[in-house]
């Protein structure tokens, strides 16, 4: 899209550091994601997975290292050897191209499902309403929510809400999708329907980074698994390797705990 060499990854993270006060949450993270890759991030609670995702689209400012999305430094600009926050416009433009799906859905409760999905395209992308609605209806069909289009979020099941949230993110035509434990707050019987939608996205070639503890999803869909602990990447590799022959003791211990 921005005319860079084909080898340039969608996302490149170099020595990413982030702390909350005196707590170092991310302590030098390096990885990159090529187009159409599906990266699954696993790791114990508090290891910094959510923080990592939020740094990628600058919902949380990071202090050290670089996040480069689509060839552009995320969030900061260099000025006179110092880093200053990038102009609001630049940050907004970057966020428009990165979709995000949250553990708690975060649908807008005062809007119907359709309104949730067209909100970004109309208000942010300035799409004509008719066009936005046509695209939204197509997306709602894809996630199986056509009959809920005029319902309010509070009347939907968790699985339906999460599928609507995915449609809302997709309506922005993102280049990269971030999922933060999209099925963790769902009843077990509703997990499958959300994973199905995500699998379909993967098959279509969407580039995605997904924090999840759904090992079957990781095994079926991930091109790469990253295991994080204490703000660092401990191990990284194809799912077969990480799950069946982990190299690090910490990975082994973690997997033993989550796979019963």
């Amino acid at each position: 899209m921005t005319g860079q060499p084909p080898s340039e990854p969608v996302l490149r993270v170099e020595q990413l550091r982030k702390s909350y006060g005196r707590l170092d949450v991310l302590r030098g993270i390096d990885f990159s994601v090529a187009a159409h890759e599906r990266v699954v991030v696993i790791g114990p609670s508090g290891s910094g997975k959510s923080t990592l995702l939020k740094c990628l689209n600058f919902l949380e400012p990071y202090e050290g290292g670089r996040v480069v999305f689509d060839g552009e430094l995320v969030g900061w600009v260099e000025r006179g050897g110092r880093r200053v926050r990038a102009p609001e416009k630049t940050i907004k433009r970057m966020r428009q191209r990165i979709g995000m799906v949250f553990q708690n859905f975060n649908l807008f409760p005062h809007m119907t499902i359709l309104e949730n999905v067209v909100e970004g395209p109309i208000q942010v992308l300035r799409q004509p309403r008719a066009e936005a609605v046509a695209i939204a209806d197509e997306l709602l069909r894809k996630v199986g929510l056509t009959d809920k289009r005029d319902a309010y979020p509070s009347t939907l099941s968790g699985g339906q809400q999460q599928r609507a949230a995915i449609a809302r993110a997709l309506a922005m035509r993102p280049r990269l999708m971030l999922f933060d434990e999209p099925t963790s707050s769902l009843d077990p019987e509703l997990v499958g329907e959300v994973l199905e939608v995500m699998k379909a996205l993967a098959i279509e070639g969407m580039t995605m980074i997904c924090v999840t503890h759904e090992m079957s999803f990781a095994r079926d869909v991930a091109s790469r698994v990253i295991f994080m602990d204490e703000g660092m990447i401990v191990e990284e590799g194809p799912p077969e390797t990480v799950f069946t022959a982990p190299q690090q003791e910490r990975t082994r211990a973690f997997l033993a705990r989550v796979i019963h």
Partner: peptide
Amino acid sequence: VDRGQLMAAYSIGMGHLQALRRI
């Protein structure tokens, strides 16, 4: 209003004032 609402608004590319006004 839940903080996640602001996060969701920002994540679809809204600015601060727009998120305040619309969400």
